[in-house]
Design a protein around this nucleic acid. Structure first.
Lengths: 162, 162
DNA sequence: TTGCTTAGTTAGACTAGCTAAGCATAGGAT
DNA sequence: ATCCTATGCTTAGCTAGTCTAACTAAGCAA
């Protein structure tokens, strides 16, 4: 088993692409899209500003504005104001949003779980053992190349749950 | 370590999203996009028809047509004809395409490798051990929900390399 | 007050996916 | 030989998601 960073990166790169394709194929168009699930997930633990959401999800603020606009139109989030700062928009999950999120997330997880159930117990354990290390890859070990309006350590903590 | 399919699916779902965000952040917009890298990779081992490419990449033929049109405009592929079938278009990698693919793929892999190099040798081994099993997830263990014009076993064999 | 900064939106463009519909060729049936 | 159907691809038009540029509104500081 080669464990040079380059070798792993090569394989991981390919597998990542395949897994994404897999998930995209299985996504119910009527439900929530991948970015939508992510955004609603961020809101599960409390309201957030547009800028904060954009930073967390690695997109620019105009992109987040359009996401929130659509989500608001669908009744899943609510645009509130910050009493202390008249410029800010505070986005909040509605009951309907919370419910829809649970449904969509479950569908996605179920689908992955169905695939996983075809593996042996041993193979699953091996994967389970690797997940924490894979998670470390995304824990911003190197400085973010993207938006200056990036996540704060505090936000990272709050946003542990999917 | 929980290794129930559902538990793993839950974590994997979240990690997948983060890894995708990670890669998107680091992608040079001037180079090749993710689907473009995939498509050119398919062509590395020989020419392919539009329909075959679409099947391999889980998209419809019109989508593949536009991809090929753009790639052709960029000089990375060449649209040829099949002597035996006047309807078919046979897409072939150009030298420029081959070169650009190598560059783009290297950039993507280098970026992942840099992250991986921050892990311990042990952690990398654990990930390396999991990759073959993760790859099995995408090896169409359940019938394809998407296009009837799907991949053939023969094509799957030919297309092992990223 | 004046002027800079920050938060968000709007406008316009591009990629990437889809369906529907059309054209051209292949290939079998009559 | 002709017709009919199936196949391969393209075109047209839609939606989602991303970007940059440019704008408005609000806060803050001199």
């Amino acid at each position: 088993m080669r464990s040079q960073p380059h070798d792993i990166a090569h394989d991981l790169s390919r597998i990542l692409r395949d897994l994404v394709t897999l998930i995209r194929r299985a996504t119910d168009p009527g439900l929530l899209s991948a970015p939508q699930i992510s955004i609603l997930s961020s809101l599960e633990h409390g309201p957030r500003r547009i800028t904060a959401l954009a930073g967390e999800h690695g997109v620019r603020t105009p992109t987040m504005t359009t996401h929130i606009t659509r989500l608001e139109a669908a009744g899943t989030v609510h645009r509130g104001t910050d009493a202390a700062d008249g410029r800010a928009v505070v986005v909040e999950l509605t009951d309907h949003g919370r419910h829809l999120l649970a449904t969509a997330r479950q569908a996605r997880i179920d689908h992955l779980a169905a695939r996983l159930s075809h593996l042996t117990e041993d193979e699953r354990s091996t994967i389970a053992a690797a997940l924490p290390h894979l998670a470390k890859l995304t824990a911003t070990p190197t400085p973010d190349p993207l938006p200056p309006a990036a996540r704060t350590p505090q936000e990272d903590q709050e946003n542990q749950e999917n």
